[in-house]
Amino acid sequence: MSTLGVAFRPLPRIDEGDGCGIDRPIAVTALSRSVKLEPEATLRCDTALELARMTRDMLEPAARLAMPEKGRLTAVHHASAYVCRNRNGADDGKISEHARGNAIDLSSLEFEKGIVPMSIARPEASDLPAAFQRSLNAFACLYFRTVLSPGSDAAHQDHLHLDILERNGGFRYCR
């Protein structure tokens, strides 16, 4: 990961019981030499690696094309990384991939000239920011196995959920 410019430090093993924890967690503060991750995120290495690759290969180039007036991408903001909880914060049910360090929720992107929040891209919208959001939702599926776009359900109205949950047959769940 250091060859990608990812800034991170190893953390002690996390074991909160009930399936929550990460064997070898890392604290990530940057996805490349020029793009910070804010706030610092506790993740598994594989999750951070996919996010760094997606940022380098797709996010930065697409943002330059769609929103050149915003300047260079300087930070990716997240709303949630590692947290011991069930899916969608429910009282019971399946444990969240956040509780294993496999997930991150992106809330906004920071550019030299402003912040762009994750938003619901209306199908009828034909402007470049809407095209960018739809592109981001789609290309995220090339890197992550679960992508829940803003507006995909009631729990994901204002952020982009990304996780690396392995499924049978390589199935990817992208909404």
Rank of each mutant, 00 (worst) to 15 (best):
P150E: 01
P39G: 07
A30S: 13
F171D: 09
A7C: 12
D92G: 11
E38L: 15
D153S: 15
L65I: 15
Y143N: 00
G21W: 03
H159A: 06
E50V: 10
G151S: 12
M54E: 10
T55P: 08
I120V: 15
L136H: 00
D127Q: 02
R33N: 14
V35F: 10
L142I: 07
H156E: 03
E50H: 08
D92M: 04
A155H: 14
P68Q: 05
K36H: 13
A121H: 03
E112C: 07
N137F: 08
D153W: 05
E16R: 13
S152K: 03
A121W: 00
D18M: 08
A125R: 08
E38R: 14
M54Y: 12
G21N: 09
M67S: 06
S108T: 01
N168K: 15
L31G: 10
T146S: 04
S152N: 05
T74W: 02
A7Y: 05
C84I: 05
A79N: 13
A27S: 14
A27H: 01
E38Y: 06
P150R: 02
L160W: 00
R56I: 13
G93V: 09
A62Q: 11
V28S: 07
R72Q: 15
L148T: 04
M67K: 04
E50C: 00
D92K: 12
A99C: 10
R100K: 14
S107M: 02
S2F: 05
L109A: 01
N86A: 04
I115Q: 10
A63F: 06
R175L: 11
T47A: 11
S119H: 09
L31E: 04
D158N: 13
M54V: 04
L128K: 13
C84P: 01
Q133R: 14
D158W: 04
E110L: 10
A138S: 15
K36D: 14
I14A: 11
Y82A: 07
L142V: 08
L162K: 00
F8T: 01
E97D: 12
M67E: 00
E166W: 05
I104W: 00
V83N: 11
R9E: 15
G17E: 06
K70C: 07
H156W: 05
L73H: 01
V28A: 11
S108I: 02
T29C: 12
E124L: 12
H78W: 08
P10E: 14
E16Q: 15
N86D: 05
C174D: 02
G170I: 12
M118S: 00
A90Y: 07
P25S: 11
S32Q: 09
G114Y: 10
R56P: 08
R33F: 12
A62T: 01
P61L: 13
L136T: 06
S32K: 10
R145I: 00
F111W: 07
E166N: 11
L142H: 10
R64I: 12
N86L: 05
A48E: 01
L160V: 00
K94A: 15
R44M: 14
T47E: 06
P150L: 02
P25C: 12
H78L: 11
R56L: 11
L128Y: 11
D46W: 03
G114M: 10
P61V: 13
S149A: 15
I115R: 14
